[in-house]
Design a protein around this nucleic acid. Structure first.
Lengths: 229, 229
DNA sequence: AACGTTTATTCACATAATATTTATAAAATT
DNA sequence: AATTTTATAAATATTATGTGAATAAACGTT
């Protein structure tokens, strides 16, 4: 997991405890002690989720939430002290995703964090089809399936993604670095030989299947999904 | 758009999330936490549509629906918890326009709201079947029943729901997070390994039953109900 | 055409990521 | 209270992925 959390709370103890706890759960955590710092850190740290205390000096949680919403839709969980005047409606209008009342049980908070992240990640795209067809090959990201001559072929995710990317940009050459960027992600740290190996494995699966297309090496440059005509 | 919705539900969390969601869709939303408050708010707020939970303290959804019908013909969508005794006939007699079972998918609810509003403006009413058939398998949400080769198989609710969802979106891969969201509900707090275990139990019941379809694992992604052809 | 240089391919292995299974505990239902 | 269903946690099994080294191919230069 490489999920980044941002804790914004003026109480250093709470920050510390949350940091320790969530780091132990495998998250990456940074803390800010007031609203202004929180917003700044949000911009540079780019967390996946924000835990936001409401009662804070300088800039309160409401204000921080509002400003975050102006630049991002990342999930925000508001933290409110018991007895504090707490306007849920306002929170919802500002776009908070969930609430928890201090003092809270860490397990519950943790479960809520997970649930909110899940909800955020679970958006199912209905609209786009994400299928590439050419001649006797068909690649579907939605089904995560490769079909050759109508028959489904077992294929690992990364290989499918690589093939999909190349095929959906057919005849165009990509360098290994570009492919790492596009298929593996911009934050991927690794050797560009990795691409070669995946290409090799793809070729094993695809060899002799068609003379209308192939995975071509462009020497000194990279690879392309080559089609005739 | 300036369509007003009234949400009547004793669970504040559900209210909140519905409010947030539908406001984001451009509706105007108000919430009531029990039946009496619901009827009062109906009179002064004059919503275009009511989302009405059945199980509530003070006054239940049936009663609220009846009272609304005495003064208005505005559309009402009943919300019922799974497993709850749910009398569709009674609902229809009371004049409800549609039903949805908790936990529901927000997109689906949203679609139903839209549909009911459209119907209301066009003065037509339809009801849907909620059955999936494919080859020798038949899954009915209405009857909560799984039939294989025409024979009913005992199956727990959650398993049926999961199977139903996957089968009604066959060949499409869903991540565990998406499945938790769609089948367990957006407010579910829990682990995604849960999905695995349910899949396992489904497989026990379904194995060797057909070679036309199966519950497939898509490595690194999730699961799908796979069909040939 | 032969050489050295660069670049690509292949292979085998290690590691990391993920899925399955099992057992058990907790909830819910009857 | 007993039974069934559901959720959790841990152990095990499986698969994908990445790495580095060895090999092969392409290229440019002479």
């Amino acid at each position: 997991m490489d999920t980044k959390l941002l804790v914004v709370d003026d109480d250093p103890n709470i920050c510390e405890i949350l940091k320790l706890y969530f780091e132990n759960e495998g998250y990456n955590v940074k803390c800010a002690n007031d609203g202004i710092e929180g917003i700044n850190l949000f911009k540079i740290y780019e967390p996946s989720l924000v835990l936001l205390d409401i009662m804070m000096p300088k800039k309160d949680g409401w204000q921080v939430c509002r400003e975050i919403r102006e630049i991002s839709s990342k999930p925000v969980i508001m933290i409110t002290a018991k007895g504090e005047v707490f306007d849920k409606v306002l929170g919802l209008e500002l776009g908070a995703d969930d609430f928890i009342v201090k003092p809270f049980d860490m397990k519950e908070l943790s479960a809520r964090v997970k649930a909110v992240l899940r909800r955020y990640n679970a958006q199912v795209s209905v609209s786009d089809e994400e299928v590439v067809k050419y001649e006797n090959i068909e690649i579907s990201l939605q089904k995560y399936e490769l079909k050759i001559n109508g028959k489904a072929i077992d294929i690992p995710p990364k290989e499918l993604e690589l093939l999909y990317f190349l095929a959906s940009n057919c005849n165009r050459v990509f360098t290994r670095d570009q492919l790492l960027d596009k298929v593996w992600g911009f934050d991927y740290l690794g050797d560009s030989r990795t691409v070669d190996v995946h290409v090799k494995r793809l070729r094993e699966k695809l060899e002799g299947v068609s003379d209308k297309w192939s995975l071509k090496t462009v020497w000194g440059v990279g690879y392309k999904f080559d089609t005739v005509g």
